[in-house]
Design a protein around this nucleic acid. Sequence first.
DNA 1: GATGAATGAGGTTTCATTCAT
DNA 2: GATGAATGAAACCTCATTCAT
Lengths: 207, 207, 207, 207
Amino acid sequence: MCPKITIEYEQERRCHILDAAAWCFARKGYQATTIDAVAMQAGLSKGAVYVYFSSKEALLLEVVEYQQTRIAEKLARVLPEKGAALEKLEAYAAAYFSMLGEGKAGECSDLKVAVQLWAELAKNEKTVAALQRDYSYWRTTLAGLIREGITQGEFAHHLDPDMTAMSLLAAIDGFIWQSLWLGEDFNWQAAHDALMALIRDGLVKRR
Amino acid sequence: MCPKITIEYEQERRCHILDAAAWCFARKGYQATTIDAVAMQAGLSKGAVYVYFSSKEALLLEVVEYQQTRIAEKLARVLPEKGAALEKLEAYAAAYFSMLGEGKAGECSDLKVAVQLWAELAKNEKTVAALQRDYSYWRTTLAGLIREGITQGEFAHHLDPDMTAMSLLAAIDGFIWQSLWLGEDFNWQAAHDALMALIRDGLVKRR
Amino acid sequence: MCPKITIEYEQERRCHILDAAAWCFARKGYQATTIDAVAMQAGLSKGAVYVYFSSKEALLLEVVEYQQTRIAEKLARVLPEKGAALEKLEAYAAAYFSMLGEGKAGECSDLKVAVQLWAELAKNEKTVAALQRDYSYWRTTLAGLIREGITQGEFAHHLDPDMTAMSLLAAIDGFIWQSLWLGEDFNWQAAHDALMALIRDGLVKRR
Amino acid sequence: MCPKITIEYEQERRCHILDAAAWCFARKGYQATTIDAVAMQAGLSKGAVYVYFSSKEALLLEVVEYQQTRIAEKLARVLPEKGAALEKLEAYAAAYFSMLGEGKAGECSDLKVAVQLWAELAKNEKTVAALQRDYSYWRTTLAGLIREGITQGEFAHHLDPDMTAMSLLAAIDGFIWQSLWLGEDFNWQAAHDALMALIRDGLVKRR
DNA sequence: GATGAATGAGGTTTCATTCAT
DNA sequence: GATGAATGAAACCTCATTCAT
């Protein structure tokens, strides 16, 4: 009586399409990606996409969420550590930059996918909310680390933990854009080193 | 016998349309902006836009150039100074952040317009080249300042001037995005302060 | 699971649209025919036309090919004969003129459709090539017949078979135009008779 | 009180524009020719064309009339002769074919201009009327010649003078098309010779 | 008369979405 | 569930025509 497809099967299908969509969005952007292209990339027909997603916009929303979840999971695996705040921060940064640099120069890693969609997301209430939530999560996490460092006398007490965390996130986002424009000329390792050097000790020479 | 319009009038018209286009692009993005919308914003008919610009893409290219020129002009007026490298850098940053924060919270300043177009520009060879040139200019300028500071013993000699300059530019670009998403919640003054504090002395407490 | 349409069905659809397009082109010409008009004539929506033909020009190309094929098929059925060259030529001509005259006076037979498109085709490299091939085929066929007649002592030996063939084809094309302009006043039977009389014996009275 | 431009000047202006229009129409066809192109070819502004012609269609109509007049004038100068009907006919044909072949292979002589417009003209009541009148004139003229030849016992009496005239006109029109398609490969002299040979004695060998 | 900026209707083409099979 | 033919709303762009100068 019930040839109902299992939930696992459905989930698998959805993820399959989401991967295809992410791949397309990253390469062409949201607007220039056609449902046909997503279907073809997924090896399905146009109609099949609509079985799992009600509209192109819904697909975008889920792609964003899916990417955020995957990135958070990847990082979560790396970070839980003990020790000095600076060491934790460095571990975080190392993980993050390693993720960013992992694809080949021209390739589109998960994070780059996300960036390609920002302009689109900024126009949509729902996606802006999702981005705000995501940003809020990372800001809180980083700010917590910084606050911990200040409390322990490791970091300068004049720092504003929240805005400092925002500054770090901003720098990373900016690097992602730079990597998109400069292509092969962008050196993630150098970017990582320069940012960490700056963060650790600042510009001004210590006496 | 000769109602041939003056070149000044034509330039004025072009700028008028460019302003309208920038306004639309900033709000809706390039793809979602229709020529009709630009024309309406400029108080003209669709056809009139095509008298001055040969295509939608040509309009985009000129908007980008126009914005870059205006921003560069604004900054050029502020910066030529003498004194310590840090002071110069601070002057630059102050000018830049002031420009960024000047529009009302929800408004679209020139820079925000530019950011809205990044995703589009990243897909177009010509615009990528324009962006690279622009980036190159700012990187060179900032890196020069940093190098000067190092030479004069003011900045730490272990810094890589170029990549450090890139980090600063990245942070600013990242802030612009944050301001788009967070809207009124984003505080440019706080961002400015936090970034400068971070840059000056870094995270690690000085003994 | 598989509503994939059969190839036969697709061919039928294509022909259906080609017929509609030929009908429109014949009446209005290529330029003045809108895709909407073709779609309406075919009882479809504008979009459906683009499912089968990639552009208006592609549609034109296929219409021409389709018409040429149909005409050639019609004639091929009539002509293979034995006997005197003049008889063969007369059979050809009879078949051709009968085709030309078959539609009602105001109607557009296949050939008239083709003529309507000539001015358009003359501007397009690909279609010019197609026309040249078509012309070449008929010239070769007719010239062969004439050469045969000369060899057998039936036709005058001072004739240039190729150019004489071209003259006959020219006369027929010219008649097609005349029929378009003169409408009901044009009498295909009379045209046929006059041309054959002229061809057979020329103007000059035989002694 | 009267800076009114002389009628001569106006006529000159009109002809100047008509020449420019004919040139454009011949090269691009009516539909693909823009008023701008005509104006540019005439060295005037778009608006100036509208001073002398009320619309693009009016321009077309006058171009056709202008061409017809010029062709008729050219021929009228050549033909008034005395002598045998065949000689007169040959004189006519020689003049006509010489006109047709005069431009360089790729060039557009007056007649070719006209042909380019036929498809357009066939759709317009007024122009169809003009064409019918023109055709009627030539048919009458030629038919008169043929009738004269018959009466004088020079031409075969079984010929239908009117339809025979139509056949000759048709052949010439057909040659014009052939020359458009075949370009440099078309040989007007050979066409002339072949047609005259055919007309004179027909295909069938005389004993 | 002459100019050319401005208009806006209309054409081709794309593509998200629907639905019969 | 899956398919892809069909739809039709828009989008970009062209160009005949008008009209203030």
